[in-house]
Amino acid sequence: MRDPYAILGVRRNAGQDEIKAAWRSVAKAVHPDHNQDDPLATQRFAEAGKAYELLRDPVLRSRYDRVRREAELRRMEAMKQKMRGPEPAEEPVDAETAEEAISRIFGVEPQAQPSPSKPKAAPQRPVDKGEAPADTRTEAVADSKREEASRLEATALRRSAAPAADLVAAIVRRIRGRIAKPAEKVPDLAVDVNVSIEQVVNRARLSVELPDGETVKLSIPPGTTDGQAIRLKEQGYRVTGMARGDVLATLRINQEGPFRTQGLDLVTTLPLDLEDAVLGCDTVLETPSGSVTVTVPAWSGSDKVIRIAGAGLRGADGEAGDLLVELRLMLREKPDDKVTDLMRSLRHGLYL
């Protein structure tokens, strides 16, 4: 089956209303009754129906998103492994020579060191007739052996005395002037988080479940508005050999209750009967931030908006938005004879 989001033409973070509207549009466009000349209309209609059935079910949709993301992670890991290529086999490091060990690590051939020269043989002096040749040769050989032993002892002392210093010096020479290349970062994970106005006012701490099944904690910051994005550092997907990505959480404030938001302003509707609209009144509203008294002026119609300063959401700087009260004129549930007679007399120019 193809990608259900692509079939319905919706975003991956689309809500249920958007998915339902897209399904109706696609179903109407590909319905076999409207495409009798298209032999594939039935197949496309069935495909759209399966896509809608999958996306309308939160459990099936979450499972599909998780499987799709895991497949993407495996593909990214395979591409990363292909780009890196086969790893070279490790070679044994000679602990005796620091230059050779660091050269193997950094891939640089060690500089050739001059090999110790062999001791020169003592020049043979011409033997005078009056000297003893055997004694002279014996003394020269002894001097040569003593010189060779001293040289070997000094070399052994140098190698055993400062291997750590040689190793540190070799490392410094290799990395001096080089800048370590930062690891490539995994793309950010974008999620939508639905919150209520009360949670925004109380700056609640939420638990957000990610598509891969992990749960992260999110604190609503002061001054939060609808559509605000919060970045959670290094809380996203993990991929071997790459820096962990971030979670980009977009807050969606529920607008279906008695209050809705416009930035930091709160908007609500106040129903009025005919008497209160004509004569005016005072009424108390319970808002997410507390009780507010609203004064309705006399002769207020449904097109009037009453603004109460400072009764909205509080911003990050401590300043609060306003409360906007939209008036709506309502009639009583049961007809009132007096009101009916009054309206009839006004229509016909009669006064009681």
Rank of each mutant, 00 (worst) to 15 (best):
G223Q: 10
G227N: 02
T250H: 02
T225Y: 03
Y237A: 12
A204Y: 05
A229L: 09
S219R: 11
R244P: 09
Y237K: 06
R205G: 05
A249N: 14
A249R: 03
V201E: 11
E214A: 15
L218R: 13
I197R: 11
R203C: 08
V208M: 10
Q199N: 08
L251D: 00
R205D: 03
L248W: 04
E198M: 07
V201H: 10
L210V: 05
A229D: 12
V247F: 10
M242F: 04
L248K: 13
G245D: 08
V216R: 03
R205T: 07
A229Y: 02
R252D: 01
V247W: 05
L206A: 04
R231Y: 13
I253V: 02
P211E: 12
D246F: 14
V247E: 09
Q199A: 08
Y237I: 11
S219T: 15
P222R: 05
N254E: 14
A249Y: 03
T215H: 07
V247G: 05
Q255H: 12
V216P: 05
I220D: 03
Q199C: 03
Q255T: 05
A249Q: 14
V208I: 10
R231E: 02
R231D: 08
S207L: 01
T240M: 13
L248H: 11
S219L: 09
Q255S: 13
S219I: 13
I230A: 09
I197Y: 03
P222L: 04
A243D: 09
A229G: 10
T225G: 08
T250N: 05
M242P: 02
R231H: 08
T224S: 13
